[in-house]
Amino acid sequence: MSTLNILLAGFGGQGILFLGKMAAYAGLMDNRQITWLPSYGPEMRGGTANCSVCISDDLIGSPLVINPDILVAMNLPSLEKFIDKVVPGGTVLVDCSIIDKKVHREDINVFYVPATRLAADNGLPGLANMIMLGKMLKETKFCTENALEEALLKCVPPRKADMMELNRKALKIGSEL
């Protein structure tokens, strides 16, 4: 299989980089090559955050994702900035509790996920990112389910062990949508 290019984008504070780290670790747990590249510098503090994740069976060239196979958009500027870059046949996940705009491309698969609202409704503040990740797993099978669970063990530090169950719950909500 060739390289899977994933682009995750949204506001700072939505856990975009963490979402990317989870996806990257899941790839690693599946014994695949991975890269994770964040946007950095003042733009991070100015509001937008995005993160490129590549998962591949071969050595990865550029870790910068220009044309994603998978786009997760968690705010409108991110959707508008990247929607035309998605490869034909690609997958787009839109947090429709934040973005009320529809995607007009016919050649890609778009899923509208009310992740932020679902997180709030289920007492999972700040875990809309994990709901999106659960949905991403279901629709793209970018990693194995077991790898995602192992990634969680790697990414949630022991001092935040209480967060583990909440993250699992959020992933489950996403994967059952």
Binding site: K21, A24, I34, T35, W36, P38, P63
Partner: peptide, 8 residues
Amino acid sequence: MLGQMMEP
């Protein structure tokens, strides 16, 4: 790029 990116 190399400084900011994560790889195994």
